[in-house]
Every structure is written in structure tokens, then in C-alpha cells.
Simulated assay, not measured.
Amino acid sequence: MQIFATFEYSTFIEIAITELEEKGITAIYAVPLDLRKKEPRLLDNIHRADGLTFIDKGMVFAFLLGTIGASKGFVWQGGPIIWGIAGAILGFLIGVSLNWFIYLLKRNKKQLQLKKGKKGEVILIVTCEDNLASAVEDILWDHKALGLARTR
């Protein structure tokens, strides 16, 4: 039977491996995962989307300022169509720049967290007999495993 577990890299995984070796389990394989080296792509395409968008606030502000511009355009020189389009363009630019500013603030906070010591994860693969599986699972859970799976 094989048991797969993921851990955040810490001393807990070392202690868990030591306890498993004391139980007589020697078929233990630990694989550290690499951290992302490059920043994720900023713009989405049709095949990949990460939920980050820059035009949502832009569309809302374009609607708001376009409506205000069109209604005021009946009074102002140039007419409602010109002022509606101008308000929509201005609102879109305001919304996109606001989203861009918020993105830059969040990105800088995430980079600071990475510099403070964000650790990678480790996958631990333990091969054992069926009768030891529950004891192995208990040891792994007791040492703060993030997730666990059992296969035959």
C-alpha cells in the first residue's frame, strides 16, 4: 500500500520521517516541489483564465460616466452622443487604472511575503503493509500533513 502526503516544508516532516523509520518503515520517498520562479501571466486568453481581470471596474465606470455624460450632453454643447462617448472612455480609463493600481499594491504585498520566507511543499510517499496503513496515516496527520491519499 502507498500513502501520499503533502507537507509544508518544516521540521515536522523530518520528525514524521524519523517516527516512520522507528516503526520499521523504510520505503519512504520525499520530493520537494519548486517554487514559482517567474510571475504568472498578466492577461488571460480563451484557454487559460486565473480570475484576474482589469476591465470589470472599467466597464462599470464607463457605464456610469457614459450615462452621466449623455444626460448632461442635452445641456452642454456637443450633444448627448459626444458627451456619452467621452464619459464612457473616461470612465473605462479610470476603472482600468484603478484596477491596475490595486493589482500593483497586492503584488507588492505578495512579493514581501515571499521574501519573508515562503516555503515550498514536499510530497511524501510511504510504501507500507496494509496493517500499518492506519498508523502511518495517524503519524502523518499528527505532524501537520496538508493532505493525504491512500492507494493499493
Score class of each variant (00 low, 15 high):
G78W: 02
A27R: 14
G78N: 04
I102E: 09
S97R: 14
G24Y: 11
I81T: 15
L33I: 12
T53D: 14
L20P: 07
L90P: 00
I46S: 05
E19H: 02
V31S: 06
G69E: 02
F101Y: 12
T18H: 15
G91A: 07
F54E: 11
F63D: 00
K57V: 10
N45G: 13
P80M: 11
R41L: 06
G87Y: 03
A62Y: 06
A30F: 05
N45H: 10
F12L: 06
E22A: 14
I89K: 01
E19L: 07
D50T: 12
P80F: 09
R41G: 06
A49L: 01
V60D: 14
D34F: 01
G78F: 03
E21H: 15
L20E: 00
S97Q: 11
E14C: 01
F74C: 01
T11Q: 13
S97A: 13
D56N: 12
D56E: 09
D50M: 06
W76L: 09
L52R: 12
T11C: 04
L98P: 09
G95T: 13
I17D: 08
I13T: 13
E39T: 10
N45D: 15
D44Q: 07
L20N: 06
W83I: 01
I89H: 00
I55A: 15
I82P: 02
I102K: 03
V60F: 15
I89L: 12
T53Y: 05
A70L: 05
L98K: 11
S97C: 10
E14H: 12
W83C: 05
N45Y: 02
W83S: 03
S10P: 01
Q77D: 15
F12V: 06
K38D: 02
A86D: 08
F63A: 13
R36K: 11
G51K: 08
A62S: 10
L93A: 10
S10D: 03
K37T: 15
I13S: 02
Y29F: 15
K57A: 15
A16M: 03
D34Y: 01
G79Q: 03
K72I: 02
I82C: 02
K72H: 05
G51H: 07
V96T: 10
G84P: 12
A88F: 10
G69I: 04
I81S: 13
L20K: 12
L20A: 04
P32C: 08
K23Q: 13
L35G: 10
T26S: 14
R41N: 05
F12N: 11
D34P: 10
K38W: 00
G91T: 03
G24R: 07
R36M: 13
G24V: 12
I17C: 08
E14F: 08
R36E: 06
M59H: 02
I89R: 01
G69W: 05
I89S: 10
T67Y: 13
H47S: 09
M59T: 14
R41V: 11
G87S: 06
Y29S: 14
D44Y: 01
G73H: 04
N99M: 10
L52F: 09
G79E: 05
W100S: 01
E21L: 04
A70K: 00
T67S: 13
H47L: 00
V96K: 01
I25D: 07
S71W: 14
L64H: 05
N45L: 06
F54I: 13
I82R: 04
A88P: 01
K72G: 09
I55R: 00
I85M: 13
N45P: 04
V96P: 06
F92G: 10
W83V: 02
I102F: 00
